[in-house]
Amino acid sequence: MKSPDKNLAKKLAVVLVLKLAVLTALWMGFVREQRVHVDGDSVAAQFLQAAATPAKGEKP
């Protein structure tokens, strides 16, 4: 590998490591603690309700 190629590879590696660090920090700061409670019965009710309601202009 030539010297400019090695230099470019080092710069790309540094940029990728920094990007990964920033993304990890953002995830830990904003997303990690978020939780969504999913209840199977409420999900089933939503799907059944959507299927039972005809779209506008359709006949049941």
Results as ranks from 00 to 15, higher is better:
M1T: 14
K2Y: 10
K2E: 11
K2L: 13
K2V: 11
S3M: 06
S3T: 12
S3K: 11
P4V: 02
D5W: 01
N7H: 05
L8W: 01
A9T: 07
A9Y: 04
K11E: 13
L12C: 05
V14L: 09
V14R: 08
V14A: 09
L16T: 09
L16G: 07
L16M: 10
L18C: 15
L18Q: 08
K19E: 03
L20C: 12
A21P: 01
A21T: 15
A21V: 15
A21H: 02
A21M: 12
V22S: 04
L23V: 14
T24M: 03
T24N: 01
A25G: 09
A25M: 11
A25C: 12
L26D: 02
W27V: 08
M28L: 15
M28D: 12
G29Y: 04
G29L: 08
F30E: 02
F30W: 07
F30C: 10
F30M: 08
F30T: 14
V31K: 06
R32A: 14
R32K: 14
H37L: 08
V38G: 00
V38H: 00
D39R: 11
D41E: 14
A44I: 04
A45Y: 09
A45Q: 13
A45V: 13
A45M: 12
A45I: 12
A45D: 10
Q49L: 13
Q49F: 10
A50S: 09
A51S: 10
A51I: 03
A51F: 08
T53V: 08
P54D: 02
A55K: 11
A55I: 02
A55V: 07
G57A: 03
E58H: 07
K59Q: 10
K59W: 06
P60C: 06
